[in-house]
């Protein structure tokens, strides 16, 4: 794995994320979230997951976040509270839990062989899985999976999206 994609993408994703959740202005949050998604996309590309990396930008950063922007503008939101963090009392507990969660994950992965025995090493992965080459998540490869092995879930997802659209219209319409 290329280290620079990890460090660059990780920094973008984490930094963008942190700024997203701490901005007073929701529009600023959206912008930083887009930065975070670009970082995520970089991470995916670095792991040869090309298709996911592309739709991360196209669908997430492109489509979904535009939807957010529209809604924010529609609601004409004013920046919330003087404090960026709205609830100091529960923040401590939330922060502590989140930190404990990360610590636990850290403890779990560093204790296992993911950390040491060539967790990212191409040779080791090939040896462990008995394959000739590493997988690549190109459009063709993912499409092959989607439309052969997982065609039913795929169709179900399309129905879900349709239902979501209908539901969104039903929720926002004043009078049906």
């Amino acid at each position: 794995m290329d280290p620079w994609t990890f460090w660059l993408g990780g920094a973008l994703a984490l930094g963008g994320g942190l700024l997203t959740v701490t901005r007073r202005n929701a529009v600023a949050s959206v912008m930083w979230l887009i930065v975070a998604f670009v970082g995520m996309s970089t991470l995916f590309l670095g792991m040869d997951a090309g298709f996911i990396g592309v739709i991360q930008v196209l669908v997430y950063a492109g489509a979904i976040m535009v939807l957010f922007l529209f809604v924010i503008m529609l609601l004409n939101l004013t920046p919330s509270g003087l404090l960026r963090i709205d609830r100091p009392r529960w923040t401590t507990l939330g922060l502590a839990s989140a930190a404990a969660f990360v610590a636990l994950i850290l403890a779990i992965v560093t204790g296992g062989e993911l950390w040491t025995a060539g967790g990212g090493d191409e040779e080791a992965i090939l040896q462990a899985t008995g394959r000739d080459t590493l997988i690549e998540g190109g459009v063709l490869d993912v499409a092959d999976q989607l439309f052969n092995a997982h065609v039913l879930p795929f169709e179900v997802a399309s129905v879900l999206l349709l239902v979501a659209v209908v539901g969104a219209v039903a929720l926002t319409k004043r009078k049906l």
């Binding site: 990890f6 984490l14 959740v21 792991m47 923040t91 989140a98 990360v102 850290l106 967790g119």
Partner: peptide
């Protein structure tokens, strides 16, 4: 030397950041 564990820890960090936002924000 980037291992899978790096990614997992990073993922948990991003998750925790999101969680932090959910817990602390009103909007």
């Amino acid at each position: 030397e980037i291992t899978t564990a790096h990614y997992v820890v990073l993922s948990s960090l991003i998750f925790a950041v999101g969680l932090f936002g959910v817990v602390t924000r009103k909007n």
